[in-house]
Design a protein around this nucleic acid. Structure first.
Length: 97
DNA sequence: TCGTTGACGCTAA
DNA sequence: TTTAGCGCCAACG
């Protein structure tokens, strides 16, 4: 992934409003030359002290991707008012854009 | 350079 | 609704 693509992706993630979420696929579509998988790779390698709202990036269908920080992610989202339904999915009204 | 791994997505069955 | 299969891309040894 080129630096320009990475910068564009991080910019998009930084623009996600509080209390809203977006998906890997959505970011990939908005970023030229990126795919859902490349976005995942990008977030995985984020520096320790970054200010990016990574917790607002979820898997397709509003499901929560299974990774180490999933629990923390769920807490952060809940703190912002994001609701999980009975099946552990985020309703579409929380999606951004 | 090659094979493996993993914060994924989409489609078919 | 759940699984499997395939495509996809970056990092790493």
């Amino acid at each position: 992934m080129h630096d320009a693509v990475r910068e564009q992706a991080t910019t998009i993630i930084a623009r996600i409003p509080e209390g809203r979420v977006t998906t890997y696929g959505t970011i990939a579509k908005m970023t030229e030359g990126a795919t859902a998988r490349s976005i995942g790779a990008l977030l995985r390698l984020l520096p320790k002290g970054h200010t990016l709202p990574w917790h607002r990036v979820v898997a397709a269908g509003g499901r929560l991707a299974h990774h180490e920080g999933a629990l923390e992610q769920r807490e952060l989202l809940s703190a912002e008012g994001v609701i999980f339904d009975a099946r552990g999915r985020i309703p579409e009204r929380f999606f951004w854009p």
